[in-house]
């Protein structure tokens, strides 16, 4: 599954650790999601999308 988390985080000028703090997860977890090595659960994916003010399908692309 592809995602735009790194791009959206970059637009806000946040570090992985800052994004992790906002989501209540570790920096390592943010990194694993950004690199596509870990697909987040539905609640975490929704929390990420909500944080960026976007719909979940605008952040995560299951077809990629």
């Amino acid at each position: 599954m592809n995602n735009r988390v790194r791009e959206l985080r970059g637009k806000l000028g946040w570090s992985q650790a800052q994004l992790g703090d906002e989501l209540g997860v570790s920096r390592q977890t943010v990194n694993a999601i950004e690199t596509g090595k870990y697909d987040p659960s539905l609640p975490l994916a929704f929390a990420i999308a909500r944080l960026f003010g976007l719909a979940i399908e605008q952040v995560f692309n299951p077809d990629a």
Binding site: G24, S26, T29, I33, P40, S41
Partner: peptide, 8 residues
């Protein structure tokens, strides 16, 4: 209390 990825 770890997040889902850390638990994994």
């Amino acid at each position: 209390d770890s997040d889902e990825f850390q638990r994994r």
